[in-house]
Design a protein around this nucleic acid. Structure first.
Lengths: 254, 254
DNA sequence: TAATTCGAAACATCCTACCAATCTGGGTTG
DNA sequence: CAACCCAGATTGGTAGGATGTTTCGAATTA
């Protein structure tokens, strides 16, 4: 069913290997997302899973506990461990998002749905921030923007600065739920970045919109902030669509 | 530090006792949220925690793993287990929400922030649902509404029907992220319900607004759906404020 | 024959004990 | 004084057994 885990890949000595529990969570999580174990289907007993992937029972127990807490599994003493129906899966969890983004079946839908979510949430976050941001928070926001400008030609760092910009923006809105939502947005952003680079992504196209968001917030102008953010997102979405098409065509001609 | 857990409360024989792991998660989670263990502070070693609350070390290990996955803890082999800074806590997790709602320090802020979130998200969900709902989904929505009407005088069941209405509404929007957000909204709703009953909550005040949302969706009219939902939420928010005031005054005169 | 009861199998829960891997701080050595 | 090393503390992981629950079929009973 599942091959044993390699315990330590100390080949280069650099990369720190994730714990066995972490690896087990990953293996089982992917098997569930990818349908190896279908919803309402039972997983093998703990001992069997443990034997199959070559770890102790406790490791499997801890892994299944985690998977239960994100809605992928349901454990019942006496009867076994079953995969939960899809509508119970918590797509706001970072691990679940990550697995889903790696799945060819789910990725495109997820990106679309994330665009919808961002278009709902982020303009309002900008508008709120324009009312609630402290002066130092605005300062930090501009610092992040300058970071983006400075790294405009180094995609990896530009993306990190972009993410930092959003982090600062959401922080300025002083809302714990919105902050939590941002975390999952970031996961998708990063996952999407691998594609982005291949399609000649240049952050410079979005610099101006970021600046306008920041300046609107600095002017304490919620409506302008909302509008600027909305513009940024729609442009970004269009860019994503073009990019996807380009990647697909490149895939065709190969 | 922490009193030992009662292993089985089979006093009435009815209530099924949560597992030791579940109880341990709860004890530690509350201690963290309430500040018994402050951010950046170390927890006692696993063996000590285990001894203090009277469980085996594995139980503590599984509990801390879960708490790590929701951002409350950070475990480091060799150095110990530390409480994460507050901005890492995942307030979209049901357990975290539940503990925070039980905390006098956090509850009011949380309710305000949730109102903000709902006002951002739910009108748009209604608007989207007006465009994407299938006919059977609309049918289910009306069924939930009729359930609310039927139970208008039985608060507990009315609230459940209310929640069902929202569930069906969000399902009709076909967006995994929005569905996940709803789950945490529901937790706060339920937690808030205990207060609501005491302040003579009558669902009848919101029936008309629910109907209008459902009918707008049935007419495939996004703008009307959005407006109706917005009205419902602002009314509800006002109601919450009045209620809180009433409860506070009642508390004063005692 | 049909309904009920009972017990064994299957499975998760929890405990104890033990060793391995990793980090930290302090002492030693150059 | 700086680099190094080692011992203690703490989490990571394994093994095996006792216990509590659920399920299901077989035996018992109406």
């Amino acid at each position: 069913m599942n091959r044993p885990l390699k315990k330590n890949q100390q080949s280069s000595g650099q990369t720190r290997s994730p714990s066995l529990v972490e690896q087990t969570i990953d293996v089982l999580g992917r098997d569930i997302i990818n349908g190896t174990y279908a919803p309402n289907e039972s997983l093998p007993p703990e001992v069997e899973i443990a034997r199959a992937i070559g770890v102790g029972r406790n490791v499997v127990r801890e892994a299944t506990k985690i998977l239960t807490s994100v809605g992928l599994l349901r454990i019942a003493q006496g009867s076994g461990t079953k995969v939960q129906p899809v509508d119970q899966w918590n797509y706001l969890d970072q691990r679940v998002i990550g697995w889903a983004m790696d799945s060819d079946d789910l990725r495109d839908d997820l990106i679309d749905e994330l665009s919808t979510l961002r278009l709902i949430v982020e303009p309002e976050v900008a508008a709120i921030a324009a009312q609630t941001a402290s002066t130092t928070e605005i300062l930090r926001l501009f610092e992040a923007f300058e970071e983006m400008e400075k790294n405009r030609d180094i995609p990896e760092q530009a993306v990190e600065a972009d993410i930092l910009f959003h982090r600062r923006l959401f922080a300025a809105a002083h809302n714990k739920f919105l902050t939590a939502i941002l975390r999952t947005v970031v996961v998708v952003l990063r996952a999407n970045f691998a594609l982005a680079i291949k399609a000649d992504y240049h952050i410079i196209e979005f610099l101006e919109e970021h600046r306008q968001v920041a300046e609107a917030i600095n002017r304490r102008d919620p409506d302008a902030a909302r509008a600027a953010m909305r513009l940024m997102l729609t442009n970004n979405e269009q860019h994503l669509i073009d990019m996807r098409k380009a990647v697909a065509e490149r895939g065709m001609e190969k």
